[in-house]
Design a binder for these strands. Structure first.
Lengths: 122, 122
DNA sequence: CCTCGATATGTCCGAATGGGAATATCGATG
DNA sequence: CATCGATATTCCCATTCGGACATATCGAGG
């Protein structure tokens, strides 16, 4: 069984911009950790995924968007990764959309939780 | 390659009610088709999935929610499937949340699309 | 020119996913 | 009680996904 986010309410929001690009919770979290740590491998470790998978996601982000969202350089002391300006904006917009969605669906979530509890006789 | 919904903008909204239950676009579509056709197998066919998979999703819905959302009966002329009252409400609420989310993120989606086009020099 | 740390990339393999097909089951109807 | 249509359930197998591991690569600094 795959571990599902324990958050009650909005758990997954995916926004598609084109046939080849979308942004969802996993990609956003990875971008955020890359921004925080300055490293793809460290971000991968903190997300509990392999470097290979994280690197694949970065590829999907960059190639899918058509312009780099994550920039990485190897060698020397400048090695590491960071978000481009476009990457930062995509991430910020996504966080904003998450929050807007939470607010927009809050009442329905409450109603569903009530229905859920009632259906189980709690 | 799995066919991804071609819809630009909101493409996936998943709402988690408990550790064992969530409702997302695929499950909602399946429930809707079951309500329309009165049959799990026909709904599966229209969604382009196997009956087995559809049946598994129905199990996940019913067992995960803790109360039946889809009711099925076999034998006789009453055979078929339909949504329970709770199932109808879950579906309607989900559709409402989808619409509320689309409205809530519309401006951000527009901004991202503009950024996307600009980043590609279009 | 050697080391070091992080990126980049390929290979191998186990787990999970899901389809296809076969089969069993149910129950009203004739 | 035989039929029929749809649900319920079980095998088998191809494909995919991703982890583990091994290298290769880069480039500043000692």
């Amino acid at each position: 069984m795959k571990k599902t986010s324990a958050v009650i309410g909005l758990s997954h929001l995916r926004v598609t911009l084109s046939e080849s690009f979308y942004i969802g919770p996993g990609r956003a979290d990875l971008m955020e950790l890359i921004a925080e740590t300055g490293s793809i491998s460290e971000a991968a470790k903190r997300m509990g995924m392999s470097y290979k998978r994280a690197w694949g996601l970065v590829q999907a982000l960059n190639e899918g968007f058509g312009a780099p969202l994550v920039e990485a350089s190897r060698g020397g002391n400048a090695q590491g990764a960071s978000l481009t300006a476009a990457g930062c904006e995509v991430l910020e917009r996504y966080r904003g959309m998450q929050e807007a969605t939470r607010k927009a669906i809050a009442r329905d979530v409450e109603a569903l939780l009530a229905l859920h509890d009632m259906s189980q006789g709690k």
